[in-house]
Design a protein around this nucleic acid. Sequence first.
DNA 1: ATAGTCCTTCCCATCATGGTAAGGTCAAGG
DNA 2: CCTTGACCTTACCATGATGGGAAGGACTAT
Lengths: 136, 136
Amino acid sequence: MNIGEAATRSGVSAKMIRYYESIGLITAPARTAAQYRVYASDDVHTLRFVRRSRDLGFSLEETRELLALWRDKSRASADVKNLAMAHVRELEEKAAELKAMADTLRHLATHCHGDHRPDCPILADFAATTPTQGKA
Amino acid sequence: MNIGEAATRSGVSAKMIRYYESIGLITAPARTAAQYRVYASDDVHTLRFVRRSRDLGFSLEETRELLALWRDKSRASADVKNLAMAHVRELEEKAAELKAMADTLRHLATHCHGDHRPDCPILADFAATTPTQGKA
DNA sequence: ATAGTCCTTCCCATCATGGTAAGGTCAAGG
DNA sequence: CCTTGACCTTACCATGATGGGAAGGACTAT
């Protein structure tokens, strides 16, 4: 199949498939005489794997490691689990950071009248915050 | 004061101060004969404002709007509050997305032995997921 | 043969930040 | 007076993952 069909079937855009190939995340497929890339269903599986990994927030480099583990039939499941759990912690950390920002801002907004008057504790806070306090 | 001191006092790197100036987020300061930028304490306040806004997750474009509101003494606090609350919703949405990824992955990891054996439900899921299911 | 859809490569843009290089400036101390 | 070191200047490149578009070739169906 051509790259367009591989894209549709895998949920990875043709653009990204070419990019993944260029950075060596996936192997270069065969080509027709006219230089068209030709994919097999195994390639679509790999692309789906990558897509799933990306959807779960792994970077391309982490995805590369996961692909390597996937291909290595003698991997230890502990290696996969470690990678996954480290990522879980990162995700939760980032989620907590965002939540903290939201909470701070929501708190400031609570005290803002939100009417025609100019007084606004949100802006007041922004203006008053010192750099040492300022780490959100 | 020079840019270095403004950077230290505001918590914004000299690099970023120059960048903010280049995109018109902050106004260009006076220069010495040798082209050194000269900042006043008001400029440091503005930079702190920007820093605080960034720390709370606002983009530079949003920060630009906030700065405009800050400078406009006749703004309606409602405008600020609307901007802030829209941002709060975005932050909470992103946090929820990250949390969902973490939960999915943690769940998969729960069923992974995490030992020397190769069997791993995490990789199995990655390999089996179809593009329509795969939106994490 | 022609239109329309697909493919190819190449370059540019995003967003916010850091790094580095090559050079000018300034203050302190020998 | 000159050197050293810390600071400043601009300019260019890199990141990470993705999209957009141009220019041109290939294939398919009429």
